[in-house]
Design a binder for these strands. Sequence first.
DNA 1: CTGAAAGCGCTAACAT
DNA 2: ATGTTAGCGCTTTCAG
Lengths: 336, 336
Amino acid sequence: MAKKVTIRQVANEAGVSVTTVSQILNNKGGRFSEKTRNKVLAVKEKLHYVPDFNARNLILHSSKMLGVLIPDLGNPFFSSFVKGVQDYSRDATYMPIVFSANHDANLETYYLGKLLEHSVDGLIIASATITAEAIDKLVKPLQVPYLLFDQNQIANLADRIEVDDYHGGYLAGQHLTQLGHQKLAMLLPKDSTVNVCERLRGFKTAIKDAGLPENNLVEINANFSMEAGYQATKSILDSGVSAVFCADDLLAIGLYRGLEERGLKVPDDLSIIGYDDIDLDQYVNPKLTTIDQPVAEIGRESAHLLVNRLEKPDIDRQLIKFPVKLIKRESTGLKK
Amino acid sequence: MAKKVTIRQVANEAGVSVTTVSQILNNKGGRFSEKTRNKVLAVKEKLHYVPDFNARNLILHSSKMLGVLIPDLGNPFFSSFVKGVQDYSRDATYMPIVFSANHDANLETYYLGKLLEHSVDGLIIASATITAEAIDKLVKPLQVPYLLFDQNQIANLADRIEVDDYHGGYLAGQHLTQLGHQKLAMLLPKDSTVNVCERLRGFKTAIKDAGLPENNLVEINANFSMEAGYQATKSILDSGVSAVFCADDLLAIGLYRGLEERGLKVPDDLSIIGYDDIDLDQYVNPKLTTIDQPVAEIGRESAHLLVNRLEKPDIDRQLIKFPVKLIKRESTGLKK
DNA sequence: CTGAAAGCGCTAACAT
DNA sequence: ATGTTAGCGCTTTCAG
């Protein structure tokens, strides 16, 4: 491809050495005369010189690329996350490479390998199914810094982004019990990652704190998708609960459809609370009550932490906590 | 970063030369003895050798990366598109690098530059606001093959993906007029790209074919987002139409909310037809009637065409056409 | 069958 | 203040 103009051509054209050009263009040209500097800069513009990326990286042992692995691009939660990552990366002049692994462990391993092969400087892994072993086997040997999000924390040593999932679950449970609901369900993926388990734990605690017996909570499994929420409708209805806490908003929206098709009303027949607070929540009918997490911000900070680590490898372990909050809308109501 | 094992280490360990290793690992080792070949392969495994990407690219002048520019990751239409691109790329062992420019021309130019800087082999540009000049100025000089989608076709010479937008618009118009609607609106972005203008043209033609006067169609502007659809509610209602054709599904869903908040019913008070057929359409209430385009397939084929072009630069101009179809659901009904 | 050597485009010690 | 030189890790003639 590409008819690239090389640094040598710039040097010739400017009548200086290659070193001079290199130094000046990398802002290490303090020692050169104003005149030389200007000339080089001018020639660079004129020739549209762009340093060859591969040659540069080969020497610098850095690609200025960040690998980002997420489970599902189609989930607005993750597209917002990616947006945050992109924004910060741009400011920091890194380039995020994102792959969506569609909840497929093989794909994750594949993309992880590809990312490493292309020598990304660091990794943001926001993918639930990836195993500690895969990371250990692929990432560790190369000593590529990485950051885990929304996922089992393998070690306590790595930098971390923490969202208060326990509190989120608690808020959901508190809200629902305060509305008088006594039999409750939680809709969540089978073998959930730690963060989702935390939501469940918080939810349970709130139920207990409300003085309700533990077996008033029924857990129903469904993957993170509208389709899965829709499919779960029957189980939920059969369970005889009056309120359900969905581990993400997509699940809730799927459930809406299942109820609608049966002529049931939200929240009259069933109160529903979601999780994430995606934009869509305000566009469904009724508007979805949910637990908000500041996802774009989380994306930004993920990139931030990672870049920090890359540029200052010896700083202390970093930890950022994010709050969640209850957003009351129209999908939850008093128990009839 | 990375404690990489180099080709030299493999060569030493295997007791052969660097050349030998290189040849064998690149499947050009026909001339070597079975024994040597096996030994090299074994050592490669043992040492977990992975060729340095940058060094390799530096020589081969190819990065096996595809740049992908889209307007909005949050739009399910584009996330499906990306999924298609990713799938094909994987099969073809290319690596797509995708950026979402959020409908911002500056961002587009920025990312386009970045992509080129990182020496992608080819480009898929599915971003509406980018200008022909930007492409001409940035892409042309580097002779990087590119493919435009969902966007003004700058020249007739490039490879092309065509979706029958005209027909899509026609189908929408035909459907609505057959239901008896006489005053119609189309909701579309200001200064739309060619593909959207084609939808409008088809829509107009269908109206004319139904024997309705031209000024029975009112055009209302709104960007591609739920928010914009929502904001447009008043204009639509004020226009006195009984049916509206939204240039994408998101717009329709935004409109749903505006109507809901005013206590109006779809399709009784207003018939709505969308465009794209995103998954969400079946999860809103009422289910959205729309024009389907096979977007994941389009994504796949975009990547396919581009990779073809990269690997066989001299093949004839490629053109693939995709059909659209009307998906009747519940958001359109007889004019009352 | 195998290896030595050149060089891709760039950066950075180390001269001058 | 500027240039010379030696690689980075790899592929590829070209010679054995």
